[in-house]
Write a protein that binds this DNA or RNA. Structure first.
Lengths: 118, 118
DNA sequence: AATAGTGTATTAGTATCTTAGTACACTAAT
DNA sequence: ATTAGTGTACTAAGATACTAATACACTATT
């Protein structure tokens, strides 16, 4: 997995998982990969995945049965969307708007710039 | 000054200065605050300002006369705009677009959300 | 009962950023 | 010459995130 420093990896993994949930790749009730398996998948230390799973547990998105594994809660998709939206609106958007003003860009410019550079 | 972790402070200061240059608060040819003064202003360690000034020097935005101070180069404004734009288009925009798709938001939604939450 | 696969916990080490303190060299003004 | 204000350099220490390795407890399966 490709990480963008300096944002903490465990948070980026959390967001990655949330996107999997929102997209429907992971469905409510599903068992999700074990700490060790997922650590291997995304090429990080198991402890880092533990931190991610702890966060998602606190958010009510996943639960675990000791000795068995982690599972998506029934309301996982809704909670995920709410979490991501809140994160986005509060943390990203204000910075983004400020940048647009400074650079005197409007939404049309953004579309253009983005298409040119991808 | 208010920093948003976990982005390195010295980078955030650099961006702050660049915005001062673009806005015209700091003009080309001007002498800028000394390392010590500016460190006091933004309430960080002088060493952190040194890192910021080093970065801006590398970018060709400022120069120093030893024992005298740092000065804005003649093309500081243009270089600043270029730097910030590049940073924005490459680092922020792709992430932002992805987020909009995931959350199924369009630009109108953004305006609305932003106005509601500020 | 034994085994393999789970989550959990602990300790130690590394890297980066930041702070803190100190010292030194250069420049301009006195 | 002296002084105050510059940039520069160095060492040390703290905080956070991440890695690494190991050990232990629980569960399901055999």
């Amino acid at each position: 997995m490709n990480f963008r420093p300096p944002a903490p990896i465990f948070l980026q993994i959390a967001e990655h998982i949330i996107q999997l949930i929102i997209s429907g790749d992971w469905k409510e009730g599903d068992r999700i990969p074990s700490v060790r398996d997922f650590a291997t998948d995304v090429e990080v230390n198991p402890n880092t995945v533990v931190r991610t799973y702890n966060l998602l547990s606190q958010e009510g998105i996943i639960s675990n049965k000791r000795g068995v594994g982690y599972f998506l809660n029934e309301n996982a998709k809704k909670l995920s969307t709410t979490y991501l939206k809140k994160q986005f609106i509060n943390e990203e958007l204000p910075y983004f708007i400020k940048m647009m003003k400074t650079l005197e860009l409007d939404f049309e410019d953004l579309k253009k710039e983005y298409n040119e550079h991808k």
